[in-house]
Simulated scan of single mutants.
Amino acid sequence: MSWLDVMSGEAPLVVAIPHAGTDLADVGGFRSEWLARRDADWWVDRLYGFARDLDATVVRTGISRSVIDVNRDPSGASLYPGQATTELCPTTTFDGEPLYAGSGPDEAEIARRTERWFVPYHAALAGEIARLRVRHERVVLYDAHSIRSHVPRLFEGQLPLFNIGTFGGVSCAPALSAAVQGICAATGQSHVLNGRFKGGWTTRNYGEPDKGVHAIQMELAMRGYLEEPEAPDEANWPPDFDAGRAAPMAAILGDILQCCVRFAEEAQ
């Protein structure tokens, strides 16, 4: 499928990239195509381009999260009750601006998008995890994300640079989250474990440490690898990807992914 990239490796690590896509496919009615693409996890696929050198499996969708968010509960239940968030098929941006000129997708349209994009994405993810579990006693699922550093509707002030989510310690062994947190702490940069972003549907659905699948989410503040303008607009957003600017962050993330592989291989 042209919108779904599955690059299979043999290391006990799956890197999921659900939100770097900008393809609006056949979905119309958006007030602005730029607005419908603005909240992408910009350039995360390029930032983690080194993952294939680790023989990791990478599963990436090119579909925009504004079409369907493959990291949301397919039932429509909120992942963060009582807090602002966006839906399975979002009707607003992160800042609360309406995405559609009209009322947005109805139940039939949400069901169509779910069947067309959500179901195949997760079938691929589940299939790759199952394939690796045949060979490895442990597999780490690493869900790769990023977001603007300032989104007042979602969180106060400036987001920490590294936001590690393990669904409150449920989705992976404490040893793995502690090791990842230790790498982040050693950088001297701001970091938090299970803060505002505790892990989305992917982390919560697949993380079963007692069955050998350890899931962890990393939400990066974008300032860590690109130049964020104070106020994004159509003239300055998204910033271009600068490999040199992103290199220090990529090196840290390389250490983190290698740590995930070592953790999984300890069980062999």
Score class of each variant (00 low, 15 high):
residue 107 E to A: 13
residue 151 V to T: 15
residue 203 T to K: 01
residue 188 G to F: 06
residue 75 S to E: 08
residue 171 S to K: 04
residue 177 S to A: 14
residue 198 K to P: 00
residue 214 H to M: 01
residue 90 P to H: 01
residue 98 P to R: 06
residue 60 R to D: 00
residue 37 R to A: 06
residue 129 I to W: 00
residue 256 I to W: 11
residue 1 M to A: 15
residue 63 I to F: 02
residue 256 I to M: 14
residue 52 R to V: 10
residue 207 G to I: 00
residue 150 H to G: 02
residue 134 V to W: 08
residue 131 R to Q: 10
residue 235 A to P: 08
residue 106 D to K: 09
residue 195 G to Q: 02
residue 89 C to K: 00
residue 123 A to I: 13
residue 45 D to P: 01
residue 130 A to C: 06
residue 35 L to I: 06
residue 242 D to C: 12
residue 87 E to G: 15
residue 94 F to G: 02
residue 261 V to F: 07
residue 249 M to Q: 11
residue 94 F to Q: 07
residue 220 L to C: 06
residue 198 K to R: 14
residue 186 A to Q: 11
residue 160 P to Y: 01
residue 147 I to N: 03
residue 78 S to K: 14
residue 85 T to C: 15
residue 171 S to I: 05
residue 256 I to K: 05
residue 214 H to R: 03
residue 86 T to S: 08
residue 209 P to H: 09
residue 198 K to D: 11
residue 194 N to L: 02
residue 88 L to F: 12
residue 46 R to E: 15
residue 101 A to R: 13
residue 32 S to H: 01
residue 114 T to F: 07
residue 150 H to Q: 12
residue 30 F to Q: 03
residue 15 V to M: 04
residue 118 F to L: 09
residue 39 D to S: 06
residue 74 P to L: 02
residue 218 M to W: 04
residue 149 S to E: 11
residue 179 A to W: 11
residue 59 V to N: 02
residue 169 G to N: 03
residue 86 T to A: 06
residue 228 E to K: 02
residue 266 E to H: 12
residue 44 V to L: 06
residue 138 R to D: 03
residue 153 R to F: 08
residue 30 F to L: 04
residue 122 H to Q: 04
residue 265 E to M: 15
residue 54 L to K: 03
residue 6 V to G: 00
residue 109 E to C: 05
residue 248 P to V: 05
residue 217 Q to F: 00
residue 28 G to S: 13
residue 180 V to L: 15
residue 7 M to I: 13
residue 226 L to Q: 14
residue 63 I to V: 15
residue 105 P to C: 05
